[in-house]
Design a protein around this nucleic acid. Sequence first.
RNA 1: GCCCCCAUGGUCUAGCGGUUAGGACACAGCCCUUUCAAGGCUAUAACUCGGGUUCGAGUCCCGAUGGGGGCACCA
Length: 501
Amino acid sequence: MTAALVKLARVRFAPSPTGHLHLGGARTALYDYLLARQTGGQFILRIEDTDRKRLVEGAEQEIMDGLRWLGLEYDEGPDVGGPFGPYRQSERKEIYQHYAKELIDSGHAYYCFCTPERLEKVRQERQKRKELTGYDGTCRMLDPDDSARRVAAGEKHVVRFKMPQEGSTTVTDLIRGDITVDNRVLDDYIIVKSDGLALYHLAAAVDDHLMQITHVFRGSEWLPTFPLHGLIHRALGWEEPAWVHLSLFLKPSGKGKMSKREKAELMKDGYSIFIKDLQELGYLPEAINNWIALMGWSYDDHTEFFTLKDLVEKFSLRKLNPSPAAINFTKFDHFNGLHIRALGTADLAERIKPFFVSRGYDADDATLLKIAPTIQEHIGTLDEAPEFAGFFFTDEITPAAEDLIAKGLNATESASIVKKSLAVLVSLPDIQVETAEPPMRKLVEESGFTAGQVFGIMRMAITGQKVSPPLFESMEIIGRDRVLVRLKNALRQLESLAGQE
RNA sequence: GCCCCCAUGGUCUAGCGGUUAGGACACAGCCCUUUCAAGGCUAUAACUCGGGUUCGAGUCCCGAUGGGGGCACCA
């Protein structure tokens, strides 16, 4: 009901293609998507590739693939187009130059001819004297006409934003309120590099304005340059978007951001902060969305299970939390289990298929459909499916003889159990759960052994595993003939062991 | 060093001046049970510290401490 009153939001996710799409980026994109969908506005993907040196081959594609896999379809972007394109900053060079010129003409920016070497020297000297390390303002004093002539003559230059030298600047963050900074600590930031390409600060401001972005979600690492961004909009006479600085994700211990080495270490535990890895590790996009949505946002006391659709409905800027959050993979596992169990049978069957195939199993759809419900409550990630249920697709079940001996029994007793079970099963018209289970339970009662002992041996004989899906359901799927063969093999092994007793 | 942000159990969080400080994950125990799970129940566990304001502060203000982030012709 309020949605109709809310202005349609145009929200952008603006990653730079310098690496993998990770949890932090995914959460930003998720919030972007949620606000856009909730208000009936647009979700835009903009690639911030102004730094040509840091480009990583394939990164842009991975971002696009990742977003789609997560279900975060964008309405405008480099590969889908849109009315405000191009959506790659490297293709918008002239646009930025136009506005840089405008800033220079209006006295809000100036040309700077200082070399990187000189800058570095100044920085070091200032550091030694424990002064602010910002630009010393040498070119700020130059006569604009002179500067323009030097530029026209082809002299190498950058463009700097002219920061007010007195007073303070106040910018407003939606979740943190007003942030006021002394202008003296602000630098005359470079906004156009000597190669003519704009730096983030200018490019993002220009694009956000031109693309009519209403809300900017970004990481709180942008807080220090936040005043600059506000000032650029103001210098150009533009209304600022609503700024939302999201809290950072900390490593599981809560102490700092994850380092490169720690990211690699994580993989050993079956975790990763990269979306692509998570997909391969058998996590559901639904679970990722649910989990990261709750890291920095909350709904109410009791609901924590959310589908994407739920989130679109329930998301609110008001409930965003400014404090940093430690990544908790254990909770992620919990959410993944929840979402696996929420899947329909056919859906689950389809999703586990690639994991069987990649393990070399010839997994057919019909069988997959049958085993899906038997494993649904038992697996935490999709990639556990093959190790848990691979025995459905192979006849190479080779349990070790000793593993066929039930707890508290010897080989002779265990062999007799198998023999009796075999006799019961052979006598049955079929091996359906309803047919096989009652007589087998009767056998347990009459034999004096425990259910655990009898079914334990059968489980090992039939599945080759100590842990498996429910026994009778598994037997039905495997089929009578194959079950009998596996039982007979087990009997043979046990008898040979019994002979040695 | 300078600047900025943050602060409720181990972790994610609810709380928006008066609550037995609520929930979730994890952990422990119990129930269910042919394994592993799932599910149900129970338990342990928190307002960083110090000053104010107020009849009354986890909640408002100031300071300290701690944690995080930033100080590039990267984003």
